[in-house]
Amino acid sequence: MNLVRAELLKIRTTSTWWWLAVGAFVSIALAFAFNAWMASTVLGGDAETLGVSGEQATPAAQAANIYTSGQYLGLMFVMLIGILMVTNEFFHQTATTTFLATPRRTSVILGKLAAASLLGFLFWLATTVIDLVAGATFLSLNDHGTQLGEWPVQRALLFNLLAYAIWTILGVGIGTLITNQLGAVITAAVLYLVGTQVVGLLFLLLSNLLDSQAVLKWQVIWPAVASQVMISEGQSEFVPAWWVGALVLVGYAIVSGVAGVLITRRRDIA
């Protein structure tokens, strides 16, 4: 418990968290504006021009989109917090001090994981409250009702919470595996941002090569794709069910967390 408090104090006493919060809120604002414009176009009958159709064109789907505005980049910000919590110790040479105060290194990493999840939750909460207030106002003004009773909407909100927790933990894991701050940040950004498109293309090539459509489903092993799968509706020949995405993400979190603990326990701090 002391360790979680110490970790939170570390974050509060530097300006990093502040910049990340500002970044997250700017991205909420931009994403909200975009999603609101999209919803009013789609629900106004112009869905075809934007290439949106079927399940995605319902008010519930658009509402879910609005209520999760800014979460795409928000997830990246919480992951960065997780990474910085670890790599800062090496970048600023505070690892010595930290491990002198707590020689049990597993506890230190667990403390970081707990503090990171808590921060992920706070970011999710703040983002969601902003989105809910702004979104409900926007949808009601446009006569669609708040849509909050719809399961797709509730589901999107809840699974984003899971996504926030997992990506923060992944951040801590990546930080312990790659202690070089720049290296860790770049790796994480690649894992997250170079998501769907590049991996989709690679798998398309692979499926042509193997002459098998089923291969496409395996895109889910890439974390960013898994994250997408987890929060999206329905499954198809090419997209596995949401829980597969969730399992893959949880798997990554566990593996990186355990690997991080084991490596940290053995590492020489010099």
Partner: peptide, 17 residues
Amino acid sequence: ASSAHKGRTGINHLRVI
């Protein structure tokens, strides 16, 4: 080779410990 976070104040460094 032990140090403090460059952006943290001295007193806060000690409070964290």
